[in-house]
Design a protein around this nucleic acid. Structure first.
Length: 409
RNA sequence: GGGGAGAUUCCCGAGUGGUCAAAGGGGGCAGACUGUAAAUCUGUUGGCUAUGCCUUCGAAGGUUCAAAUCCUUCUCUCCCCA
């Protein structure tokens, strides 16, 4: 007999967010009693959030929608250490200055997505309490509650027993546990959510709070999102799918979702959009190709705004559908005299960013993937000049997926 | 502190004096097939002023006509002993 579950929790489950929970019934009851303050931690290890960071943040929005209070904890302190969880190798140490700069960038991106109001959602930085900890005091007060024997039994460390684990990284769990305790003390935070690789760290935090404060807290993890063909989610040819438009353009962002595997469409609609569950399911069971277009638009609109999403859609239609607005395709401007003088195809493709070196461009031509204005270029020595300009532009294609426009002025 | 193993191209991983820009696999890219999907097959995968030239096999030196391969020193990683 299924017990009635709290609505917020139920929504997360329905949408595929829940992987593990320390005490589902207990958490459900706590949520029923009233607003629960919860947190999600993100270490600012790079200059931009990427889509891999976002599942817990989407969950944060759902939870907040249901009336709970969400804290986005920037790991300005923990990033100085590096979390070994889920990694097979030691992460490179990052300079303090870079971490602080990253943290500020992350905070802005999160604010744009979450819209902190300092009441139902706000950001914190664990640098505030971790950076100046006294080592001896910390060992006595916190370290004494951790059993090395038990820590070693966690999966995250077992993996690293093979490849090596430095003492610095081994301490990460204590710091994250201390974060939870600190947030409990400061804000009455009772729930930590995060990716499933955080399970060990989350459980450790809950145990610490129980021992030190005698309070019962909860943990909830989300599945690590893989594409159905087993790859890490959100990877493009150029690397991760970043939220920063200067690192991953809205066009590339849109195309990523537009090209998702059939089997992932429903899951991604549920996780990365706010469309009602029924609608997600209906879309995915209908015209799958149309569902992908919808998915791409929705996610792009959420991250980059409706205008950017519209533009990306127009560009996609122009590039692949024969309609749409050709001007929205990624482009750059070149002078008419520059083109009129004639430019080698190889140089042109490199210039357009469709090939990173001339050798790559040459390969593209040799393999029949270089197309200018619907004409396949077969001679790598071909020169493109003024005669190629059509309606004030050149349209370059590298293979079937990559397209770029040179606007001539 | 002592002993052992190791560091190869985007990743894994062969190679132990010339035939090595370096096997094989993965990933990427392109072509065919398609639905801007998946699967499959094929080709390709350091750069360039290109039948040749330059850079690359942890770093710096050295031996040699010739080194990823041999010698020296250094840096880093892992394992075992203390």
């Amino acid at each position: 007999m299924e017990v009635r579950m709290n609505r917020a929790l139920e929504i997360l489950k329905e949408r595929g967010f829940v992987q593990q929970c320390t005490d589902e019934a207990g958490l459900s009851a706590a949520l029923d009693e009233g607003p629960v303050t919860f947190y999600v931690g993100i270490d600012p290890t790079g200059p931009s959030l990427h889509i891999g960071h976002m599942v817990p943040v989407f969950a944060l929005r759902h939870m907040r929608e249901a009336g709970n209070v969400g804290i986005a904890l920037l790991g300005g302190g923990t990033a100085r250490i590096g979390d070994p969880s889920g990694k097979t190798e030691t992460r490179k140490m990052i300079s303090y200055a870079a971490i602080d700069a990253n943290a500020e960038l992350f905070r802005k991106q999160l604010d744009a997505f979450v819209r902190f109001d300092d009441r139902t959602a706000f950001a914190a930085n664990n640098k505030d309490w971790l950076a100046n900890l006294n080592y001896i005091d910390f060992l006595r007060e916190i370290g004494s509650h951790f059993s090395v024997n038990r820590m070693l039994s966690f999966e995250a460390y077992k993996i690293r027993m093979e490849t090596g684990l430095s003492f610095v990284e081994f301490n990460y769990q204590l710091l994250q546990s201390y974060d939870f305790l600190e947030l409990w003390r400061r804000h009455g935070c009772r729930l930590q959510i995060g990716g499933d690789d955080q399970w060990g760290n989350i459980v450790a935090g809950i145990e610490l709070i129980r021992r030190v404060e005698g309070a019962e807290c909860f943990g909830l993890t989300f599945p690590l999102i893989m594409t159905s063909d087993g790859k890490k989610m959100g990877k493009t040819e150029k690397g991760a799918l970043f939220l920063d438009p200067s690192m991953t353009s809205p066009w590339d962002f849109f195309q990523y979702w537009r090209n998702v595997t059939d089997a992932d469409v429903e899951r991604f609609l549920l996780l990365f959009t706010f469309l009602p569950v029924e609608e997600c399911k209906a879309l995915a069971s209908g015209d799958i190709n149309a569902a992908k277009a919808r998915l791409a638009w929705e996610v792009t609109a959420i991250i980059h705004g409706k205008d950017a999403a519209d533009q990306a859609r127009e560009a996609a239609l122009a590039a692949f559908g024969g309609s749409g607005d050709i001007a929205k395709i990624p482009s750059r401007v070149m002078s008419r005299t520059e083109i009129a003088a004639g430019i080698g195809v190889l140089d042109l493709f490199v210039l357009a960013g469709l090939a990173s070196t001339k050798s790559e461009a040459r390969r593209l031509v040799q393999q029949g993937g270089a197309i200018v204005n619907d004409t396949r270029i077969e001679d790598e020595k071909a020169t493109i000049d003024g005669r190629w300009i059509v309606e004030g532009a050149l349209l370059l294609r590298a293979g079937k997926k990559r397209i770029f426009r040179i606007v001539v002025e």
